[in-house]
């Protein structure tokens, strides 16, 4: 049923796909983390305008499909004079989309630290930054890590969106192999195996982190 030759004959295509899927995921991962933390901070500062901007950002990107975000970069930006190729558009779309979820996780983590602790820290003479650094963030990080790991798992799966805009990722090449060989089941089975190799370790890590949090909490 599954013909191994599909893998051996097209090994170079699969390999290039894996490489691009990995780089897209890692780039989007780093970018979405930075962007997500910035937006989370915007949402909890005492500037009303920043609060609103942060909320609009999060709500907008969480409520539209990832494909649409990618289309905005791939088809929409050229209309404004900026053309980015499929790989870059896909990665940027992935980054912006995921950052909205990370922003929410980070905000929830920070706000889960009881306000009493912040007040106590402030009244004992610590500055706002010191309070954040020594009291709030260490506790928040512990709460935030499991949902963020989970987002990264989603991110790797979602990176398959690159295939729709010809981003040369694993899904794209799996599809190309399929259209050359007409052996759909085998072409996709190997794509599945490679995705699982990337996602299962993340899945295990995310579960383990969640367990540890439950035990310590």
């Amino acid at each position: 049923m599954i013909s191994p030759d599909i893998l051996t004959d097209n090994w170079d295509l699969y390999l290039e796909g894996i490489r691009n899927t990995l780089s897209a995921s890692l780039l989007a991962l780093a970018g979405s983390f930075i962007l997500g933390v910035i937006v989370a901070i915007m949402r909890i500062t005492s500037f009303r305008l920043l609060n609103i901007l942060g909320a609009v950002y999060v709500e907008f990107f969480r409520n539209i499909p990832l494909l649409l975000v990618v289309y905005i970069f791939f088809l929409g930006l050229p209309a404004l004079g900026l053309t980015l190729n499929g790989f870059i558009s896909g990665t940027l779309g992935l980054m912006v989309y995921t950052s909205a979820y990370i922003a929410e996780a980070v905000r929830a983590g920070i706000q889960s630290v009881p306000i009493g602790q912040t007040e106590a820290a402030r009244s004992s003479g610590l500055t706002y930054t010191q309070t954040m650094r020594h009291v709030v963030l260490p506790q928040a990080v512990k709460i935030v890590i499991p949902p963020i790991t989970n987002q990264f798992l989603n991110l790797v799966k979602n990176s398959s969106i690159l295939s729709v805009v010809s981003g040369f990722d694993l899904m794209y090449f799996g599809d190309i192999v399929n259209s050359y060989t007409y052996d759909t089941v085998s072409s996709y089975a190997f794509v599945a195996v490679f995705y699982l190799i990337l996602t299962i370790p993340l899945s295990i890590a995310s579960n383990a982190l969640e367990r540890r949090l439950l035990r310590s909490g």
């Binding site: 799966k157 969106i161 899904m171 799996g174 996602t199 299962i200 899945s203």
Partner: peptide, 12 residues
């Protein structure tokens, strides 16, 4: 199923 991209499931 949870660890595979939905796009792959749709194609499949």
């Amino acid at each position: 199923v949870r660890n595979l991209p939905l796009l792959l499931l749709i194609f499949f």
